[in-house]
Amino acid sequence: MENTLTLRYEVDGEDFTRAGEASAAVKRALKKMGVSPEVVRKVAIALYEGEINMVIHADGGVITVEVTPKEVRMELADHGKGIENIELAMQEGYSTAPDEVRSLGFGAGMGLPNMKKCSDEMKIESTVGVGTTVTMTVYIQ
């Protein structure tokens, strides 16, 4: 087994002001490990967008990040309402975020497409009424 660092964070769905704490902690950890700035940047943006989504749409969830010498693998799992139409949700500009979220600077329908753009692999599994798990991988090598 190669060296693997696993980080796990509970995301509080009640407090939008704290959304992003987990992503910031992961970013700091990766920087400390000497991971390249471009990889850190991609992981930070993808994870932050995902964390914001968890708070907006799913009352929080759990983020697990595994760092190996080859890749950073992120799993964001929630027990929210699920995504009815993943293909539609992936379209730029499509959003179901409420107006109060838009007034905070989010909900432009850019989150999922941006997560895809920043990751080398991305998979969304979602069941309406059960929850959503997003898995993203950014290659280090």
């Binding site: 992003g20 930070a44 905070l104 497409p113």
Partner: peptide, 25 residues
């Protein structure tokens, strides 16, 4: 988050903690 790269200053009229978190990211 989607379109900006390598910018060192953010000008905004939005005032909430996510502005700081976005800039940090």
């Amino acid at each position: 988050l989607a379109f900006v790269k390598d910018q060192s200053i953010l000008l905004t009229g939005l005032v909430n903690p996510q502005v700081i978190r976005t800039a940090d990211m």
